[in-house]
Amino acid sequence: MIEVDGAGRSFTVTRRKGLLRREREVVHAVSDLSFQIAAGEFVGYLGPNGAGKSTTIKMLTGILAPSAGRIRVAGLDPSRRRTALARHIGVVFGQRTTLWWDLPLKDSFTLIRHLYKVDQVRHRERLAELSDVLELGPFLDKPVRQLSLGQRMRGDIAAALLHDPPVLILDEPTIGLDVVSKAAVREFLRGVNAERGTTVLLTTHDLGDIERLCRRVMLIDHGRLTFDGTLDALRATVPEETSIEDVVTRLYTRTAEPR
């Protein structure tokens, strides 16, 4: 469902050198990245800040074109077929809403139906299903700006799934949520993956999300993939009593050492 073959993304930045001088430098945000994700997998994508996670997500969704290599999502080149790809993927950015700030939540869902050209009957059925599972009913008539963070996040997840995409890409979907809201979102995502076979790629700094949801974990640091395997294989790299938080911290420290 997702194929990444030798993908890279570089940026040219200008840095100040002295009072009047500027110097240009090429920064490699992602380098020679390769992995495949099969249909129905639930994969965690981890890395410290600045490791290249967000750049990868932007390339997978077509926001950025790779500087090198090849990417396919649902059989499409994301940067060349971005409009067509939108019908096959749902995306949730935990710190940015895709909903209309001043409109009632249900009106945002109606606009999304028109954007994706979803049949009205199918939209009604899907919205009823998502509203029931995510408990959206009590605040469907509220403007998005009046929703709590947990309510808005549930609304964003519903918006990403209204057109029933086979691929769901989540960037920090539980950031800032309280314990109850976080548990509800996790349970819903587990059901979407298990019952509908939706392929899920999850980036998060919350290792509780990884332990409860993901069977496979990928670690990226300095733009390069440093681990790709099962959660059990990740745990096996250190003593048995070590927590998953310590496992990941050690791997980050190891990969951060000068090469």
Rank of each mutant, 00 (worst) to 15 (best):
E3Y: 02
E3V: 10
D5S: 13
R9C: 06
R9T: 03
F11D: 03
T12D: 06
T14S: 14
R16I: 09
K17F: 05
G18W: 04
L19C: 08
L20K: 05
L20V: 10
E23T: 14
E23P: 00
E25M: 07
V26T: 15
V27K: 03
V27W: 01
V30D: 06
D32K: 00
S34K: 01
A39L: 05
A39M: 09
Y45K: 03
L46S: 06
P48F: 07
S54C: 01
S54T: 15
S54V: 01
T55Y: 05
I57T: 09
A68G: 02
G69D: 06
R70H: 14
V73D: 12
G75I: 07
G75D: 14
G75Y: 13
D77P: 00
S79E: 10
R82H: 10
L85G: 04
I89H: 02
F93M: 09
F93R: 05
F93N: 09
G94Y: 05
G94K: 03
T97G: 09
P104D: 06
S108E: 08
H114F: 12
H114G: 08
L115P: 00
Y116V: 10
V118P: 00
V118S: 02
R126N: 12
L127F: 10
A128P: 00
D132V: 00
L134S: 15
E135M: 11
L136E: 12
P138D: 03
P143R: 08
P143W: 04
L147A: 11
S148F: 09
Q151N: 11
Q151A: 10
M153K: 09
G155L: 00
G155Q: 04
D156V: 05
I157P: 04
A160T: 04
A160I: 00
L162C: 03
P165H: 12
V167C: 12
V167R: 02
D171I: 13
P173K: 05
P173A: 11
G176E: 07
L177Y: 09
V179H: 06
V179C: 12
A183L: 06
A183E: 15
A184V: 10
R190Y: 10
R190F: 02
R190I: 02
V192W: 08
N193K: 04
A194K: 15
E195W: 03
E195K: 15
R196K: 14
L202A: 13
T204N: 12
L207E: 13
D209A: 09
I210G: 08
L213K: 07
L213G: 11
L213Q: 08
C214R: 06
R215H: 15
V217H: 13
V217C: 12
L219G: 05
R224H: 06
G229N: 05
D232Y: 01
A233V: 01
A233H: 05
R235N: 13
V238F: 07
E240L: 07
D246V: 09
Y252I: 11
A256L: 13
